[in-house]
Amino acid sequence: MDFGPYLFLASLEGAVTAAVLALTAAGLSLVFGIMRVVNVAHGEFFMLGAVIAWWVASLAGGHPAVGFVLALVIAPLIVAAIAALADFLVLKRVQYDPERTIVATIGLLYIIQQTVLMTYGPEARPVEAPFNHRIYFPWFGYSTYKFFVIGAAIALLLGLWLVMTRTRLGIVLRATQLDRETALAFAIPVERVYALTFGLGAGLAALGAVLVVPIQQAHYLMGGDPLLLSFIVVIIGGLGSLAGTVVAAVLIGMSDGIISVFFSPTLAKIIATLAVALVLVFRPQGLFGKAAR
C-alpha cells in the first residue's frame, strides 16, 4: 500500500480514537469545571461502562443490535447512578476539598477495579458490533461500525452542547460553575447539582466505552489509557472549557492514531505527554482556557 492510503487509514483510526476520547474527556472536563474535582477514578467509570455493556449484551441474546442498543442506554445510566452515589457517600463528606478528593477518587479507582476483577474476572471479553458491514475503498475495506462511532460521538457532543447552552439545566450547571455561593442564594440546590454533574461526567465516559467495546473488548484494566489521555486533553484544551476539550481530543486522538499506525503506540503517548508539558510551560490555562482572574 502506498503512503497516501496508509495515511488515510491511520487518520480513520485516529478519528475513532478522537471521537471516543472527546466523549470521555468531556465528562472529566465537566466534573472539573463545575465541581473543581480532579476525578482520578474517571477511567474506571469508562471501564465500568464497557464491562456493564458486555454484561447487558450477553444477557440480552438475540440479534447483536438488540444487546448493543440496550447496553448503550443501560450502561451509562448504571454508571451515572454509581457515580452519583459515590459523590453522595464520599466526595460530599470530604467537602470537595481539592487534595482530599484526589485521594478519595484514587481509593474509588481501586475499589471499582478490584470489584470488577473479583466479579467479572481478568478476561477480556468482546461485545459484538450491532452491524458489521464493510465499506470497500480502492485500497482496503473499513468497518462501517467505526464510522457509526464517529457519528454517534459527534451527535452526543452536539446534544451535550445544546443542553449546556439552550436549556434551564444548562443555565443551572453554568451558574453553579461560575459562583457556587450566589447560585445557592438563588435557590440552586448545589449539592444535587454536584451529584448530577458527577453522574453526568461518569455517564459520558461510560457512553464512550460502550461505543468502543465492540472494537476493543472489555477488560478490568482498560481504564488507564482513557484516564491519561483525558487528562492530557483536558489540560491542553483548558480546564472547564468544553470547546477546548473537543478540539484537543481531535488533536490528540488524530496524532495518537496516526503515530500509532506509523510508529508505535508508546511513541504516541510520549508525544502527547510532551505536548502537555509544553502547554503547561507556555500556556498554563490551556489553549481555550481563560487565565485565572
Partner: peptide, 22 residues
C-alpha cells in the same frame, strides 16, 4: 450581594432566568 456577584459568563437574559426559576 456586595460586588453584584453576577454570573458573568451568562447573558443578561440567563441571569434573569436564574432569578425567575427560584
Amino acid at each position: 450581594p456586595q460586588g453584584r456577584r453576577l454570573f458573568s459568563e451568562l447573558t443578561v437574559a440567563e441571569n434573569l432566568e436564574v432569578g425567575l426559576m427560584v
